[in-house]
Amino acid sequence: MHGYDRLDGPNGRIAFVRHAGDGPVVVFLGGLRSDMTGTKATFLDGWCRARGRAFLRFDYTGHGASAGRFEDGTIGAWSADALAVLDRLTEGKVVLVGSSMGGWVMLNAALARPDRVAALVGIAAAPDFTEDLLWERWDEETRAALLADGVVTEPNPYDPAGYRYTRTLIEDGRRHLRLRGPIPLACPARLLHGGRDDAVPWQTSLRLADCLAAADVQVTLVKDGDHRLSRAADLSLLARTLAALLGEDGG
């Protein structure tokens, strides 16, 4: 993997790409098992470069070009990766763009550094997914297997080998649940979600909007959109959303 810089993070070396420009810095936070070479990450990189805007994308440990094993990761560990990146690779205000699980990491990072965050953009944001979309869906046999063996493997359309979920991931997730009460963040938030999302129900974004303390929160439902929201029209919506937050035209 060439072309990446690396940072010694709290859980191992973190690979990242950044470029300087006008602030606030746009920081992309990817989803579970995705990496910074994905469609949305690279689109935002190019979009920010074309406008002379500062941008940063990175891989959590156990993902992409970063060190570590995916099975060793947790919401807390990946949030710590994000904080290390924010603290050591950015200055001034940031706009956090969180995709799927990255929407949960985005909230954790913003709550830890509220004075740094100018705005939030969630793309199919998935806070609390370990509890609401995994544990609550599993039957007693699956739960018992997880507790006994420490891991379960589930089929997943994004990986023929399936996803391996660890007991540690589920138990750590319970320490970071965000949709159980008010989320004391005052910055503007924009939440984009596909009506045909088969991984994270679009109602999750409505729940998140309700929990956020900020008054300036908007939810955009893309009726025919899927979980990735990576089609040309979806990326255009993302660009217009970000541009409005940054005081630009959508270009």
Rank of each mutant, 00 (worst) to 15 (best):
P188M: 14
W135H: 07
G30V: 07
L120A: 04
I123A: 08
D234W: 04
W78Y: 08
P127W: 11
H227A: 02
A209W: 07
A148I: 01
L133H: 15
A145W: 00
L206T: 05
F55M: 09
V26R: 07
A110R: 05
G76W: 00
T130G: 12
G195H: 09
V222M: 12
H63L: 03
L134P: 00
V27T: 09
L96H: 09
M101K: 04
G103T: 05
F58V: 06
E171D: 14
V26Q: 10
L134H: 12
R174Q: 06
R143D: 06
V200L: 11
D87I: 01
L192S: 08
L107A: 09
G250P: 01
L86R: 06
I170V: 14
D35F: 12
G98Q: 03
L242P: 00
K93Q: 13
G247Y: 09
D216M: 06
R178V: 13
A145R: 11
A148L: 10
V200D: 06
A118K: 11
S34A: 14
T42P: 01
G247A: 09
G23L: 04
D115K: 10
A124P: 00
G194A: 08
T166H: 10
F55T: 01
V151L: 09
W104I: 01
M1Y: 07
S100C: 04
K40L: 11
G52E: 07
G21C: 08
G251T: 12
P114A: 10
G73P: 00
D87L: 04
A186K: 13
L238F: 07
V94I: 08
L238M: 11
Y4Q: 04
L83K: 03
T61C: 15
A144H: 05
T168A: 15
A186Y: 12
R18V: 01
N156E: 12
L89K: 09
R18I: 04
T220E: 13
C211E: 05
F28E: 05
E154G: 02
V105H: 02
R228A: 15
V200S: 05
L134N: 03
L229V: 02
L107P: 04
D115M: 05
R180S: 11
G173F: 05
D226F: 11
R231N: 06
P24V: 14
G38N: 13
G23V: 07
S230C: 07
E71H: 09
V152C: 10
G150P: 03
V222H: 14
G173D: 09
G250T: 04
D132M: 13
L147R: 15
E140Q: 13
E71D: 14
R143M: 07
R174C: 08
A244P: 00
G64E: 06
G173T: 09
H193G: 08
D87P: 00
E131Y: 12
A119G: 06
P10Y: 10
A214T: 03
V95W: 09
L147N: 08
T153K: 03
L221G: 00
R164I: 02
R174P: 00
G38V: 02
G31S: 10
V26D: 10
D8L: 10
A84Y: 04
F129R: 00
R13M: 04
A199F: 14
F16E: 05
R174N: 06
Y4W: 12
L32C: 02
L246R: 02
